[in-house]
Design a protein around this nucleic acid. Structure first.
Length: 200
DNA sequence: CATGGGATTGACT
DNA sequence: GTCAATCCCATGC
């Protein structure tokens, strides 16, 4: 049975930019840990920063598969990065979850990260992967069925203001404004986009 | 089969 | 500001 508020396949079966924006304010949950999404980036097979750009390969097959599925891959040999596959099956696109504000299971997060400060626990895609215990085993798992699930925004976060910026940490298609951040959140990864902390 | 780069982070100068 | 860690996988020979 799927918990109330869990986003279903139809939510992800839409243009990836819409999903990326709408995911800001939603929550990611894995076991006892949960966090509020404050930063996302969109990736699409039509642009070279996407892993789907090369077409269907063993690695990118997940991206071309069913929407609402997790795409998890290892970055720089160390970090597990969590994405949500979007758009209809056959279209290679996904949203990278880049940062969270810790909500539940903060003790687990601190233990896994070896750090205390709240803003350091999930303020980056590799950090949140470690804090939530995301591993490559979660690749292709269903984000509606778990073990990792994404839920609709909690009270007060339905209409969060979103700052749009350019994606970071990439070398191709750097000009596309496909990064979405929750205005005012100090858990966004650095560098912060202009205007992030302007009056709320 | 060998090679090289990367959607990152943390430590260091 | 620089740089290494560390591994998956796409690419090229």
């Amino acid at each position: 049975m799927i918990a109330a508020g869990t986003l279903d396949r139809a939510f992800y079966d839409r243009p990836v930019l819409d999903v990326a924006r709408d995911l800001v304010g939603c929550t990611v949950r894995h076991g006892p840990t949960a966090g509020l999404i404050v930063e996302t980036e969109a990736y699409h097979h039509s642009e070279p920063a996407s892993h789907a750009y090369v077409g269907v390969t063993p690695r990118s097959a997940t991206l071309y598969g069913s929407p609402g599925v997790a795409y998890v891959y290892r970055s720089y040999g160390i970090h597990a990065l969590l994405n949500a596959v979007c758009e209809p099956e056959g279209v290679g696109a996904a949203v990278l979850i880049r940062a969270l504000e810790p909500l539940e299971g903060i003790g687990h997060m601190r233990a896994r990260r070896g750090l205390d400060r709240l803003e350091d626990l999930c303020s980056g895609p590799g950090k949140l992967g470690q804090a939530l215990g995301v591993t490559l085993e979660h690749n292709t798992t269903d984000l509606a069925a778990g073990p990792i699930v994404i839920e609709a925004p909690p009270p007060g976060w339905e209409h969060v203001r979103v700052i749009v910026g350019t994606r970071i940490g990439i070398t191709k298609a750097v000009e596309l404004p496909w990064r979405f951040c929750a205005r005012g959140s100090r858990s966004v990864s650095k560098p912060w986009p202009p205007g992030l902390l302007d009056g709320r």
